[in-house]
Design a protein around this nucleic acid. Structure first.
Lengths: 199, 199
DNA sequence: CTTTCTTTTGGGAGTTACTGTCATTTCATG
DNA sequence: CATGAAATGACAGTAACTCCCAAAAGAAAG
């Protein structure tokens, strides 16, 4: 996941970060996000509140820290050049979901559950997605040898991210990403490619 | 815009609300969003901070209070039934932008500038858009006589909203929606309808 | 091992957005 | 004018941050 830590200092920092994160997630799941204070998290992780904010600039960032989106863009760019962009995207989705190790998967799932359950977090997650649109628009253009600000490339990126977002579970009792979801993503991208038939 | 106020009380409330809003927007534009405190706004509008929060549950809501999205859905549903969904959407965009009176337009523009300039506001605005996706998905399905949770309808709604969002100016020095923008929106929807050709 | 330098940590004080409560004022009504 | 309802303002309190400074812990050098 991350580069292997060398010095004692690095190892301690990684451990502290992980501890804060784990205790925070647990408390959020147990008592709810809003009802959990930063002080409680700090107490549980045995650090001072000051230290908490040194590791995570905001309470939200404990949950939102690293995003999957950049990985997605990288995998997308690694696809064979002969694939059409939307097909390359589908293949990238497939690659990511099949190659993910179970532990990462489980953690990802807990995160998704929290994010989609808490409006505050959902808002920021979606904002991250708009940054992903920029990344994707650039990536698509690059792949096809088009200028970086190519209009149709932007539209495609926006449509793809929007479509995927739209089929994410978000209502009451929603569950995060499940193993079956990557096939729904592929269906959505196929529809896009075919001009959005409604039949 | 709103129903005509009858009683003295109603009129006063409307005036107070407008005053808070106007002073807030002015201060945000002059000194920036974060640098403006609720107390300053309350002072300028000559109300107590308590009253401020009675009118707007959060500082953000002064800017985000009413959204254009619901209007969009209504106009979309009012389009002639023989238009294909994406064409109906295009026509709805056209109707709204041409029918908007200049004063509303000017205010809308100031709002857009603020929203797209302040990350915090942008995040919440985008969240509102996801709610719009739900509305649109339902509207599309309804128009075509499909079940409310029809998968391709959701994908279409998500793609359309995502595409439009993607071509909104958001970078540094970005300007809000300008009169020329509705044609860009139409271009985007046309691309969607045609299966997203990149040429 | 000790000294010195650097990084990390904890503590405290301060700001700001927001919540809840209660007395007072302001409008509506008979 | 009297009475009830709604709006307001002042107050106290909480929680998420921010800034700053002194103490602790790891790294490097003698």
């Amino acid at each position: 996941m991350t580069a292997l830590p060398t010095s004692l200092r690095e190892r301690k920092k990684a451990k502290t970060r992980a501890a804060i994160r784990e205790h925070a997630m647990r408390l959020f799941e147990e008592q709810g996000y809003a009802a959990t204070t930063v002080d409680q998290i700090a107490d549980a992780a045995e650090v001072s509140p000051s230290t908490f904010f040194r590791y995570f600039p905001a309470k939200e960032d404990v949950v939102l820290a690293d995003d999957l989106d950049e990985v997605m863009v990288r995998v997308f760019l690694a696809q064979p050049a002969e694939l059409a962009p939307l097909d390359a995207m589908m293949q990238a989705v497939r690659d990511i979901f099949t190659g993910m190790d179970p532990q990462v998967w489980a953690f990802e799932r807990r995160r998704q559950d929290l994010i989609f359950g808490v409006p505050e977090l959902r808002a920021r997650a979606i904002q991250q997605m708009t940054e992903t649109v920029d990344l994707f628009a650039g990536a698509i253009a690059q792949r096809q040898g088009l200028p970086a600000d190519h209009f149709p490339a932007r539209v495609m990126a926006g449509a793809a991210v929007g479509a995927i977002l739209a089929i994410m579970p978000s209502g009451v009792g929603a569950q995060g990403v499940t193993p079956g979801d990557h096939s729904r993503m592929e269906q959505a991208l196929t529809l896009l490619r075919d001009g959005l038939p409604l039949g």
